[in-house]
Design a protein around this nucleic acid. Structure first.
Lengths: 350, 350
DNA sequence: TTGTAGGCGTTATCAG
DNA sequence: CTGATAACGCCTACAA
């Protein structure tokens, strides 16, 4: 590959020369801590240095700096897929926080494939990232354990695994909230579309739901807990399977909004009215949920915030601090898909 | 910030020492072209070097390399927001292609704000990216023109602006396809939900649609072309506005699937059946489109592919080649939202 | 085919 | 407070 556009940024030497100081002084003023700067040069000199730097559009070369300091201010982020809105939103939180801290991030998709998780991690490492954030942890923790053993600094986000530091939603509680809601509505024959079997999100949401029902004296037969992909097609497939069963559930909890949308579609195909004939709840409170023809009852999880906190966690880890995992509280958001009273009067007839 | 985990990768010197050769030979074998490698060392020596490198998990330090070569193999990618599925999918295409070529990418959100576009671009530049891919071009081209003047290598994706090199969908044709379809169905009172006024995607899709209708002798009054955000909430707002009008359109073309979903919701709220009372078409063929309760007629655009081609374009540009913009063909996908015959027999009653 | 030396831009250290 | 100097890891022109 060719040349690009040569010298686009001035170098420290140039700045120093034009400001009439030596390189180290310029460095201290421009790239040191504010304290360094204060004791590095007289006010006037410092101002002059900054003026020249500004004029030449000087930017410290991070590659040179990282070579010297052995820290890159780079964070690698690995997610199942960015085209999953949940992960995209979490990543936005990561990016915002990182930017605020002067860090840069690389994202990569692992498609939840152990092979790719490994490969992407190695790519990030060979780019010399200071640490990693994984949004694709599998509950068995095999891969993550390896990373931990290699003493690579990392934080998990969205999904937990083992005792590794993570920032998650309190998924168990979220599941309980949905169960509570269903119980209040009097549903006794219920089903769960449980997501991927390796994701703590689905596992915990399902467990919370199941436990709450059990406490109410109702046992969920395993035939009413169906795994699925975390998207509309997955939800549809799972719902088809449920509807093939002998007894139809009166309420379905899909552990993900997109899966829930697939459920809505399937119900319609079978001539069933969501919210009236069958209650449906999702998880995450995706922006889409409230805009659907039948607005979706769901559990709001602080996706953006989780991303930011994962960055904080990782940074504290890199600072050598002892860190603790965080579990953020979810909120139930009731809409028409579980509550016929909320269907607009006209729409109920449709 | 603290220390992390010290020496995680071997250096070239270590490899060379253990393999019993000098650094330059090792470098030529490991990081040179295959030709370099061949004439750099005898077969056995080369093999030995590679063996040691493998054993030590040697990875060339890209920061050191880029310092020397003045090329970083880094590409900056700027999009309106990654939580927009269209952009996320395009970015996946970018990432795949970049990975294949041994390049790494930084993504950042600009939220379509000129200020942020500028700021993010500067961040990318100060990270010394070799080039940029913009998914957030505004049709006025103000910002992009500036970048071009500064002779910074870049490619546009999804949206075009001026004559700058871009990879887009043939949006104009896409709009025509929808018009054609509506005309065949006999719709004469139609409306367009046109997206953001600064995005070529919405502009071109609208123009294609309008032109095809004009050719059929039907003029769209400007009151039936409503701008909107590219999401469900935006579509809902725009649809509300349309339904407040004196005469109700019999068909609505939303230039984006998510906006179309907002339209579906609004119709239901007004007691109107999508596909029966009002036809609705979207754009992009998002995976969700086919799974909706009323599956959505839409125009398939090659999002993933566009991303990959944008990388190719940029790489050719960096190689000093003359490049030409590309416009990829879209496909109409007809589903129930415009065709009552496709509504499942039961569902039509709902 | 192999080796040597210098420098990319920074920052840390040490001496004044 | 200021300045000189070395070194981070790699690449490459040049010499042998």
């Amino acid at each position: 590959m060719g040349q690009g556009e040569g010298q686009r940024h001035a170098t420290l030497r140039t700045v120093a020369q034009l400001a009439g100081v030596d390189v180290s002084t310029a460095s201290r003023v421009l790239n040191g801590t504010s304290e360094d700067a204060r004791r590095a040069a007289s006010r006037e000199k410092a101002d002059e240095i900054r003026r020249v730097a500004e004029e030449l559009n000087y930017r410290s070369n991070p590659h040179a700096a990282s070579l010297r300091t052995r820290r890159t201010k780079l964070i690698g982020v690995i997610v199942p897929r960015l085209s999953d809105l949940v992960l995209a939103t979490i990543y936005e939180g990561i990016e915002d926080a990182a930017t605020r801290l002067g860090l840069s991030t690389f994202v990569m998709n692992s498609h939840d494939e152990p092979r790719e998780q490994k490969a992407r991690t190695e790519v990030a490492l060979s780019r010399r990232v200071d640490g990693l954030i994984f949004g694709d942890a599998h509950i068995d923790g095999r891969f993550i354990d390896e990373i931990a053993e290699r003493r690579i600094p990392f934080a998990l986000v969205n999904r937990r695994a083992g005792n590794h530091p993570s920032v998650t939603c309190d998924d168990y509680l979220g599941g309980r909230l949905v169960a509570e809601h269903f119980l209040e509505l009097g549903h006794e024959r219920v089903a769960v579309i449980a997501g991927e079997p390796y994701a703590s999100t689905g596992i915990d949401r399902t467990a919370g739901f199941r436990d709450r029902y059990r406490e109410a004296g109702i046992r969920l037969p395993s035939s009413r807990i169906v795994h699925s992909h975390f998207d509309a097609a997955g939800g549809r497939q799972a719902a088809e399977q449920l509807l093939r069963g002998r007894t139809r559930p009166t309420a379905v909890f899909a552990v993900n909004d997109f899966a829930a949308i697939g459920v809505l579609g399937t119900l319609r195909d079978h001539g069933l009215r969501p919210g009236k004939d069958v209650a449906v709840a999702g998880f995450n409170d995706t922006p889409l949920a409230r805009e659907l023809p039948v607005p979706l009852t769901t559990v709001r999880s602080p996706m953006h915030e989780m991303g930011g906190l994962a960055v904080d966690l990782l940074v504290r880890l890199l600072d050598g601090e002892q860190v603790k995992s965080e579990r953020l509280a979810p909120d139930l958001v009731v809409r028409a898909s579980t509550d016929p009273a909320r269907l607009s009067p006209v729409a109920t007839d449709l």
